[in-house]
Simulated assay, not measured.
Amino acid sequence: MDFGNADTWGAAIYFWIIPAVLGDAIFPPIPSEMVLITGGALSAEGRANLFLVGSLSAAASWLGDVIVFQLFKRRLSHVLDHWAWGRKVHRGIHEAIAKAGRSSTYGAIIGARFIPGGRLATSAAAGIADVSTPGFSLCAGLGGVLWATWLVGLGYFTGSATRLPFWASSLIGLGVGLVIGALVGVIATRRRGSRSPVDEPDGPAEPLP
């Protein structure tokens, strides 16, 4: 694959979106934001369909959130505690939940995805809190649409405004997105608690090594 060829990326971007956004729901370091911004930049060059890129992004976001939500709603997350690496992941998730803040559950489901790690944290917290499935699905869908619109739109706007090669527009868009996300994160940390706002119904977890 020629990574500098817009035609090649235009044909492949649709196949990158779903696995990247789904994976990001469970493992936030996956650069799904970069994929969506790139899709927007390619759309600005006419190499991809803007509506299709946005629709796939929103749908994959919703599906990933629902998967994480159901894992925690059905208490399947404790399976992780059987392994050392799983306990670290489980502990990391609860740390992420603690950082998600104490805002209303539905508001957090929609808005916290704009903060790094917030998407995983709020989906897991909602599952632990036994939020209703229809309510979560609706908020996750709305949040997914807003999140996809923001990132794909950022790539499209950057590509249209700069008229640089798509990869350069993508990097600029990513930089802008990271700065704005960091600012939002700093503001949000002023309202965060020091522990998970939602406790497991079976009581506190055993100390982890």
Rank of each mutant, 00 (worst) to 15 (best):
A59Y: 12
I67Y: 05
G118T: 01
P197S: 07
A205P: 11
V21L: 07
G173S: 13
T122W: 15
L142C: 07
I97L: 04
F166H: 03
A148I: 01
I187C: 10
G144A: 09
L71R: 09
V176T: 09
H90L: 05
G141T: 06
A11G: 04
T149C: 05
G101K: 12
I17C: 12
G54N: 01
A188Y: 06
A121T: 01
Q70P: 07
I26M: 14
V68F: 00
T38M: 11
L80P: 03
R102V: 12
V66F: 05
G40F: 11
V35F: 02
E33N: 10
V176F: 15
R74Y: 11
A126W: 03
P116M: 08
G173I: 14
G39E: 01
L174Y: 04
G111A: 13
P165E: 05
L120R: 01
A20E: 00
A48T: 02
P31R: 02
G4P: 00
A124I: 13
P19I: 09
P201Q: 07
R191C: 03
L50I: 05
P165D: 11
A140W: 00
R47D: 09
L178T: 03
W62I: 12
S77P: 02
L138P: 02
V79W: 11
V198E: 08
L171A: 14
F136A: 05
K88T: 12
N49T: 05
P28N: 03
I115D: 02
A129Q: 01
M1W: 04
G143D: 07
A11M: 12
G181V: 08
T189P: 11
L183N: 00
A25I: 13
T122I: 12
F136E: 10
I30H: 06
S196A: 14
K99Y: 08
K73F: 06
L63R: 00
S132R: 11
D24Q: 03
Y14M: 14
T158H: 03
P29T: 14
S170Y: 08
S43I: 05
S104P: 06
G118A: 07
G92L: 10
S169R: 01
V53E: 04
L138E: 10
Y106S: 06
R163K: 14
R192E: 02
R119E: 13
F114H: 03
G64K: 00
P197N: 03
A129F: 07
E33S: 05
A205M: 07
Y156P: 03
I30N: 05
S32Y: 13
A84S: 06
V68P: 10
S32N: 08
L56A: 08
W147L: 05
F114W: 13
G143I: 09
Q70M: 15
R113Y: 06
K99N: 11
F51V: 08
A100V: 06
G193I: 06
V179C: 05
L208H: 08
D199K: 15
R74D: 09
G86N: 11
I37R: 10
P209A: 15
F3W: 04
S137M: 15
K73E: 13
P204S: 11
V176M: 12
F69A: 15
G46A: 04
L63A: 11
T8F: 07
H78P: 02
V176H: 13
E200A: 15
A126S: 06
G127E: 12
G10P: 10
K88M: 13
V68T: 01
W147A: 04
R47S: 09
H90I: 00
L50C: 03
G141V: 10
G111C: 09
A121Q: 08
G39A: 05
L171N: 08
